[in-house]
Design a protein around this nucleic acid. Sequence first.
DNA 1: TTGACAACATACTCGGTAGTATGTTCACAA
DNA 2: TTGTGAACATACTACCGAGTATGTTGTCAA
Lengths: 209, 209
Amino acid sequence: MSQPQPIGDNGRDAIIAAAADCFMEAGYDSTSIDAVADRLNATKGRVYHYYRSKAELFYDVYRRGMVINLSTIQPIVERDLEPREKLETMSKAHVRNMLDHLNFQRVVMQGVEMHLAGATTPAQRQQLASLMKERERYEGLFRQVLVEGRQHGVFRFDNASFASKAVLAILNNPVLWYRRRQDAAHDGHEEIVEEFTRYAMNCVAATQT
Amino acid sequence: MSQPQPIGDNGRDAIIAAAADCFMEAGYDSTSIDAVADRLNATKGRVYHYYRSKAELFYDVYRRGMVINLSTIQPIVERDLEPREKLETMSKAHVRNMLDHLNFQRVVMQGVEMHLAGATTPAQRQQLASLMKERERYEGLFRQVLVEGRQHGVFRFDNASFASKAVLAILNNPVLWYRRRQDAAHDGHEEIVEEFTRYAMNCVAATQT
DNA sequence: TTGACAACATACTCGGTAGTATGTTCACAA
DNA sequence: TTGTGAACATACTACCGAGTATGTTGTCAA
């Protein structure tokens, strides 16, 4: 049922963060609730006090990941920018999120996989389906800008749905191989952000830069 | 240790196919050996007669997927084509493979995930690492054409490694959402092939088409 | 024709983990 | 000061599934 998460609920927050790290490092199935508890220097009791099942915990982590992404992109969408600049700003912000919140983003990836795999129980299916809607909404924000840009003649593509998938495929890619640098100062983030954003833009651009 | 798979080994072939389907539908962890056996109208005994562990079976399925891809692309690489046409031909063939062999391609995806997650035992890590090398070799085929095209002035990008990742990210994308049509005649494959190939080409193109 | 091995099937073990049942402690309220 | 519930810890159960040990059947070779 997972209540609409009261903000600043520190009880859950620490658990979510620990779970995100565990899921990132070992994947959903291979992560035991005990492992999550260990990372908190606590025991199962603490986790099960807040979550009724492992699946619900996972969903909450997933949801947190989507909240991070949506709350970053939504304000940009609402800004008054020309489509080209808007998409570029959105893209850069998205890639930065990928790099800055690797743990949550990997969980989001796993959620997609789980959805493909087909969750076991009907209740789980339903939960996952609603999470996927969030994801589609997110994709819709990009699609919307793309369509607008096409009307203005700055973008070119046939199927808007395919185009948004292609763009996000590029922007999500770093999640598949990026590993955190120990040196926080020059972490190479900007190079990745710039380059993958450029690829994404080119992909649907009507005219060359 | 999995011998260098004698071709036409029908004993393993049926198992590999069944396992690919199971892994696609339920994912690695949620697939039991019994489930694979059931799909063959057989029992565990048959599977364990050919494979020492579930992991080894998975690796063999993964390897089969890579063989499908490599054996499709390699001949194209060796053809004498200009870089643009070569990349286009490779891309189309790749996307077709994605759609035609969904089960194996999903397993390849899961393999990447497993590698990120970090397999449990050292032996598994080593196995996965060697499989990832195959994958990198495959990516190398694309990178090679990209670099060649850049010299000819038809492609433009900074980091060749990033560029090849971006291109393949697009071409792999359909695996994440495509679902087999019941109607084999008009399955919509060609539309997907054409469109995603175009996005991939645009992504690194120096001049507009 | 026999015996040796491949190709399975059957019947078990056993560890790991999700979930539960039941303490224990502390804060705060009446 | 007591009692009530939140926030955990401890100790347990129950099951699932990987792997094993041991049949059983057919085939082919000497």
